[in-house]
Write a protein that binds this DNA or RNA. Structure first.
Length: 115
DNA sequence: TACCTGACGGGCC
DNA sequence: GGGCCCGCCAGGT
């Protein structure tokens, strides 16, 4: 059937695809990705998907995904956790105190781009 | 099988 | 203006 909504089995793949669509030097939020997949208030699910993307190929730039406050809440899930801010800094994103500097300026809305 | 936790967000008091 | 609570979905124990 013309399922306008993808099977929940693809939800994770959709999330990974969107996260991979984030350009280098930019960052997005869980809520933005959740809204992009059509799951409102599903930010939790997005974060959970990130945890499942560890060691997944192709690699998902989960380090470009931060919470609404621009804080690297999921850095503790990296190995080592410093890898997250290291990658961000390496891409030109300034991170201080586990928070993305000028986050709103580097914020990249997948919904806006996908539209 | 059922309960609880978990990378969050938003609304309400 | 700040703090607290609830809601979402899935996976693990």
């Amino acid at each position: 059937m013309s399922n306008t909504k993808p099977a929940k089995e693809n939800i994770y793949e959709i999330i990974y695809e969107i996260v991979r669509t984030v350009p280098k030097g930019r960052v997005t939020t869980y809520g933005a990705v959740a809204a992009a997949i059509g799951v409102k208030s599903g930010a939790r699910m997005v974060g959970y998907a990130m945890n499942s993307c560890a060691g997944l190929k192709p690699a998902v730039p989960a380090h470009r995904v931060v919470n609404r406050n621009g804080m690297l809440t999921g850095k503790h899930h990296f190995s080592p956790p410093e890898k997250m801010e290291q990658l961000l800094k390496k891409e030109g994103v300034k991170v201080k105190d586990d928070i993305v500097v000028d986050f709103e300026q580097l914020f990249w809305d997948p919904v806006k781009e996908l539209l």
